[in-house]
Structure formats: structure tokens, C-alpha cells
């Protein structure tokens, strides 16, 4: 029975449980304290742990991320909230030159157990508030990149991200954050107690035999709806939620493709040089026989403002349905 909460509350609950068991976990970010985050995913934390451990910072992304580096060097486990993933451009230097590299540059001596939690995905907010960008972070060595698709995963993956000794970019989908747990067709039951979901293990959301749809974050939900429609057309889709881009669970996808022979990668991020090409290539490299593959991602354009335009470029239930059908039926 689903509890009466939305996904952002599941994340807040996960943060609270980690902060209770480990004093070194601290939260820094814009509006994370009194407001509890603009999406509510840090709500109640400042009340429970005080304004020093849950710090409302100035609008200074470089200071937030840079302070995270210093705090990590001091043995803390900072959770840095960058309100929208689009704002990471402001502080990318600290992310890719310090957070991602300090462990390596120190010869393995310095650890960066940092979670950069942020919101991505399309909800009609235009080019500067709608990106996913997980492909960008995945391209930079040294960062784990996680993007959950449902409340159960969000809570367990966040716990794993916080205890990870490696830096994790944790991208929450804006549309999912505000969706109630009971409205998810999968992952809606969220236990009250703490649990972890290991980072790097994909989950098979639906089993099927005609094609494999691999995706993550918000498009798992729309792919799920598309798969239900495909079923009525006599097409059996296996739906895989990758859960993370780094590490990328090629093994689970390859095992599925070995069965279905066809792979459709659905990605709400940009098409070129991204997740879809990487996953297809790795499956090919694995030596599994793959008869067909398709990539369905945002063609290389910024996300437009008007929803009619947004829908034209962002994978949704209808476009995923069409892409899957085409892949299976075309010879």
C-alpha cells in the first residue's frame, strides 16, 4: 500500500535517515533550509538538524560546490543542492576540476564523498530550466551519475549515494519529484525505514520478448505507458530502468538484448555524444547479437519554451510508442 507522499518527500526522508545515523552528513544549498528546497526534497531537515548543518547559502554555486570540496577534505559528507541541473554551468569548474579529479590527482589519498543533488527534466520551463545533462557529467571521469525513476528507487539510491566514497551527481526529475507515490505504476511502495539500492545495477521494470527499451529517470514512466500500448498491438517490450549512467549496467541490457535481439534507447538528454550512442556501442562491444537498434533522444536542439514545441523534441509516451513500433516492424 503506497504511503501518502510524493517523490521529493521520499528523498527528504532518505536524507533525514542518513543525517540521523551519520553526523558528518551536511546539506548546503539555495533555499534548502527554511524553505526545504524549491521542490521540497530537503523539507524538515533544518528543523531537525539546525541551520549550521543545513545551510541556506547565498546564490553562489561556485562557493557551494567549492565549500563541498573543502568539507569533504575535512571528513564531511556534504550534500550540495544545485537547484536546477542547468545551473551547474555556473560551477562546473569545481565539479569537474576538483570534485571529479581530487581523488585521482592525490594518488587515491583524498576522498570526495560528495552528493550533488539537482533537478533536471522537462516540464515546460524552456531552454535554461529543462535540461537533463547526465551525458555531460558521465563524460567527465570521476563522477557517478544517478537518475532515479520512482519513489522506492529515489529513497534507496539517495542513501547509497550518501554513503558512497565517490562523488555522485544525483539528478531528480522535476516531473517525478511532484508526483505522488501512489501514482507510480512501479516503485510506489516506500518503506519507512532506511535501505540502500546499490548504484550501478539496472532494474527490469517489465519483462518482454520482442524488444528491449532501456532508459532512466522520467522516461521510464512514459516508456512504461508506451509498453502497455505496444502490448495491445501484440508487441512485447522489456523495459529496463538503467538507474545510473555511471556506472552503466551494460550486463543487464546485454542479457535482455540477447533475448529480444532489438534495443531502443530512450533518452531525455541530447542525442549526440550521449547515453544512447554509448549504450548501443557497449552492447555491440559485448558481442551479443543485436539485430536492430534505435536511439530516441532529444535531437540536438535546446529545449524550446512552448509546450507544443517541447513535445516535438522530447521523448514522450506517443513518440516512444512510435519509435518502438517502427523498430520492431521495419525490416
Amino acid at each position: 500500500m503506497a504511503r501518502n507522499l510524493n517523490l521529493s518527500q521520499c528523498i527528504a526522508e532518505s536524507l533525514k535517515l542518513e543525517m540521523e545515523r551519520d553526523d558528518s552528513v551536511v546539506v548546503l544549498g539555495e533555499d534548502v533550509g527554511k524553505q526545504g528546497g524549491v521542490f521540497g526534497s530537503t523539507r524538515g531537515l533544518q528543523k531537525s538538524f539546525g541551520a549550521t548543518r543545513v545551510l541556506d547559502t547565498p546564490i553562489s554555486e561556485t562557493a557551494i560546490t567549492g565549500m563541498g570540496v573543502g568539507l569533504a577534505m575535512e571528513g564531511y559528507r556534504p550534500i550540495l543542492e544545485i537547484m536546477f541541473v542547468d545551473f551547474m554551468g555556473v560551477c562546473l569548474d569545481q565539479i569537474y576540476n576538483a570534485i571529479a579529479k581530487n581523488h585521482y590527482m592525490s594518488g587515491g589519498k583524498v576522498r570526495m564523498p560528495i552528493v550533488i543533488k539537482t533537478a533536471g527534466g522537462c516540464i515546460g520551463s524552456g531552454a535554461q530550466h529543462s535540461q537533463c545533462l547526465w551525458g555531460t557529467f558521465a563524460h567527465l571521469p570521476g563522477l557517478k551519475v544517478v537518475a532515479p525513476s520512482n519513489p522506492f528507487d529515489a529513497k534507496g539510491l539517495m542513501a547509497a549515494a550518501i554513503v558512497s566514497d565517490d562523488p555522485v551527481v544525483f539528478i531528480e526529475h522535476k516531473k517525478l519529484l511532484l508526483t505522488r507515490a501512489e501514482d507510480f505504476p512501479f516503485g510506489s511502495d516506500v518503506p519507512q525505514e532506511r535501505y540502500e539500492i546499490p548504484i550501478g545495477k539496472a532494474s527490469v521494470v517489465l519483462e518482454g520478448s520482442d524488444l528491449t527499451i532501456a532508459t532512466l529517470s522520467g522516461t521510464v514512466l512514459s516508456s512504461y505507458a508506451a509498453a502497455k500500448r505496444l502490448e495491445k498491438e501484440g508487441i512485447s517490450a522489456e523495459l529496463i530502468d538503467l538507474r545510473s549512467v555511471v556506472p552503466l549496467d551494460v550486463e543487464t541490457v546485454s542479457a535482455s538484448v540477447a533475448k529480444t535481439g532489438k534495443l531502443l534507447v530512450v533518452d531525455e538528454d541530447y542525442l549526440s555524444f550521449g547515453l544512447s550512442a554509448e549504450l548501443v556501442t557497449r552492447v555491440l562491444e559485448s558481442g551479443i547479437e543485436m539485430k536492430k537498434f534505435g536511439r530516441h533522444a532529444v535531437p540536438d536542439v535546446p529545449i524550446p519554451g512552448a509546450v507544443t514545441l517541447e513535445e516535438a523534441v522530447v521523448p514522450g509516451e506517443e513518440s516512444i510508442f512510435v519509435a518502438a513500433q517502427r523498430l520492431v516492424r521495419s525490416e
Binding site: 565549500m67 577534505m73 576540476n97 576538483a98
Partner: peptide, 25 residues
């Protein structure tokens, strides 16, 4: 607790983080 960076200015917020750790402790 010594570190250096090749990016001009980037050590400043890192130092602020160390200073904040002192506050937390």
C-alpha cells in the same frame, strides 16, 4: 589539510569549506 589547484581562484571556496568545517566542529 594542504591542497593546491591549477585553476586561478578555485582554491578560495575550498578554503571557505575548510573554514566552515571548523564551524561545524
Amino acid at each position: 589539510k594542504f591542497s593546491a589547484t591549477g585553476i586561478v581562484g578555485a582554491g578560495m571556496p575550498v578554503a571557505a569549506g575548510h573554514a566552515y568545517a571548523s564551524r561545524l566542529r
